[in-house]
Design a protein around this nucleic acid. Structure first.
Lengths: 182, 182
DNA sequence: GTCTATATTTGGATAGAC
DNA sequence: GTCTATCCAAATATAGAC
């Protein structure tokens, strides 16, 4: 994970990875027949957004959006995993990249989940109606991704968590700021 | 440009590039002493967003935002350049990447330009006040970037232009849809 | 200005011993 | 399950002729 996050897929080497895990190159390739297999193995390991692991009993409606915002805030302290997904998702659009299928279906899944949550929120009357859930879903995911890159390049200038909270709030039309307990 | 866009920096090879331009490898390295120099040369050539080239007589206030939206729409027909910047901007956050300085300053410049335009729009009364221009600026750039990746992976599913127009409109609090001439 | 030739390093992967 | 040894291909870069 660290190697792919720090150097990207192409520039990370089995030599470095092997050394880090205390094996020889052949030792690593005993478990993962190829470098591409190793990458997909790493990607399948877990999901940066903490979303896939929620399963079917995920929060509904705006509660789900709030969970999103919380995840962004938490990610501020997990630069490594942010870097991993930021680098690899973009790298995956290159020709023949081994993570292409992974990210294609990941985005598809994220959009579907978010679209559903937005529909729930509308049905619950939590957010104003009249907007296309699927389009908003894509935009919400997009801001989070885009802010990650800017934050990685300038962590002291870009307040990723604050910007994400504000942006998502405005995109869906509801204030998602965590209310203080009185 | 095409090589870096299609394969990313690390995976693009001087061999392929040389062949494409009809030179030998040594021939290419005669003009650009190293691969890294070639990359920065390509990046300096022009800017995907068409923004830097606007100079000081750029449109003011919401007119500038409209220009942004138009650019996104135009980019729908320029997959190559979209891919170039999407791939390289993310790749640039990896350790020692030769385009890191370029993208750091590019984002800084874009945020500054957009922040200024948002302040103008507020002073002109074109958009509601009370929002932090710098934060909104970062988010606007972020949606555009994020939508590009999703669009590249699923061009038939993601309507980049429509989503960007809607998202930016909501982020700044004004309808940016191009009005039809009557 | 462009080439050939080559140095040098590094990459991923395989065979087979232990 | 892990290693040594090795293969082979490909990479960037340099030297120097033309």
């Amino acid at each position: 994970m660290e190697a792919f996050a720090t150097r990207g897929y192409n520039n990370a080497s089995l030599a470095e990875i092997s050394e880090r895990v205390g094996l020889t190159q052949a030792g690593v390739l005993h478990y993962f027949p190829s470098k591409a297999d190793l990458l997909t193995g790493v990607l399948d390991l877990r999901d940066a957004s903490d979303l896939e692991e929620l399963g079917e009993d995920r929060p509904r409606g705006t509660a789900f959006l709030r969970h999103l915002v919380d995840t962004v805030r938490r990610n501020t302290a997990r630069e490594g995993i942010v870097r991993l997904y930021a680098v690899l998702s973009a790298e995956s659009v290159t020709e023949g990249h081994p993570a292409q299928a992974f990210f294609r279906s990941r985005y598809e899944g994220l959009r579907a989940m978010l679209t559903e949550a937005l529909d729930e929120a509308r049905d619950l009357g939590e957010v104003p109606g009249g907007l296309d859930s699927a389009t908003v879903a894509a935009s919400v995911i997009a801001v989070m991704d885009g802010l990650q890159v800017q934050w990685l390049l300038a962590p002291d200038t870009v307040d990723m968590a604050a910007a994400a909270e504000q942006a998502i709030s405005r995109l869906v039309g509801v204030d998602l700021a965590p209310r203080d307990a009185v």
